[in-house]
């Protein structure tokens, strides 16, 4: 991740491997990068036969992370209180009536 973020251009898995310098397998690096891309942390573009990866812009990462928090189910604990509560679809007309009443005040 740091290797990709530190670079000033998109890197292919081979370049990331050189950058990391360790004795990692090429497929390991490729899989990791693909996973990060699936998670929305990295973006990728085709360069010849391989993909080159670049960090996704931070606003997108933030929005993505917020959605993750909201959708994991334990958001009630992470997030103090969402402004809105559950609403049954049948209650939409009732809520509309209440809005009308509130607007009359």
């Amino acid at each position: 991740m740091a290797a990709v973020t530190g670079a000033d251009r998109p890197l292919t898995p081979a370049e990331v491997l050189t950058e990391l310098g360790g004795d990692l397998a090429y497929t390991t690096v490729m899989t990791t990068l693909a996973r990060l891309q699936e998670k929305g942390v990295l973006t990728r573009e085709r360069v010849g036969r391989a993909f080159a990866y670049a960090p996704a812009d931070s606003a997108a990462v933030t929005a993505r992370r917020m959605r993750d928090v909201l959708n994991t189910g334990d958001d009630r604990e992470v997030v103090l209180a969402r402004f809105l509560d559950e609403l049954h679809p049948d209650e939409v007309p009732l809520l509309a009536r209440l809005l009308h009443e509130a607007e009359g005040r």
Binding site: D85, E86, L98
Partner: peptide, 25 residues
């Protein structure tokens, strides 16, 4: 994504959002 629809039956109490709006009015 917003509504916990499946967990509520039609006969259930009014949902919390409704209760909160009613309480404010």
């Amino acid at each position: 994504t917003v509504w916990g629809v499946a967990s509520m039956s039609a006969t259930a109490d009014p949902s919390r959002l409704i209760l909160r709006v009613e309480a404010l009015l």
